[in-house]
Amino acid sequence: MHDEAVAHEFQYASASHQADTAVAGMWLFLATEVVFFGALFLSWIFARHFNQAGFDAGAERSELEIGTINTVILITGSLVYSLGVVLIEKGKTRAFIMCAAAAWLLGLAFMILKFAIEWRHDLDRHMFPGADFGITGDLAGGAKLFWSFYFFGTFVHGVHLAVGLGLVAWVILRVWQGAFSAAYLAPVLVVGLYWTFVDIVWLILYPLIYLIGRAT
């Protein structure tokens, strides 16, 4: 902590009291997110259990390569942001900005691969479960369910990632302006927690979409 008293809101005893509380609040928020996505994953697994053949027929058409590259991209993004946090704790503000910017670019790369390329491929192949759905026959029903979950799940995850991109950009800006530094790290930590959480969601989506169907 710096010598000069750092500003804090009047309900807190000190700046560190406020910072610790902010981190605690983010953990609790992430708990709500776990329940939020938990309901999705539960529905997904439940539906697959009763329509396994159809789900697997649907999953075979997913783009394993893009999915795998995207997984690597996201994990790397988390890693470099976390590295940045270690660096800014040691006062290396510029290094943090480099790391956070790299994480931001990786996040953007994920979005482009996922939505501009993969979704486009999927739509071109009539994988959207609408009237001209590309899978016909007995297994069409289950495959439709799979692709419904696919588009829904990746969309909701994408929205979370978009929020994450906004937050990381904001952190970079404020660090650049000198508002956040080793003396006042709470927002940097809080955004980092969220950023990593979004990756963890993807680490569950990835096997659900690309792997389980191919394994059987």
């Binding site: 009763f50 329509n51 053949a53 159809g54 007995d138 029903g141 289950g142």
Partner: peptide
């Protein structure tokens, strides 16, 4: 109506819906 859901063993899966 949904034969693929609970298929019987030891027959080929050809029953249409």
């Amino acid at each position: 109506l949904t034969p693929e859901k609970r298929r019987v063993a030891s027959y080929p899966p050809i029953m249409p819906s």
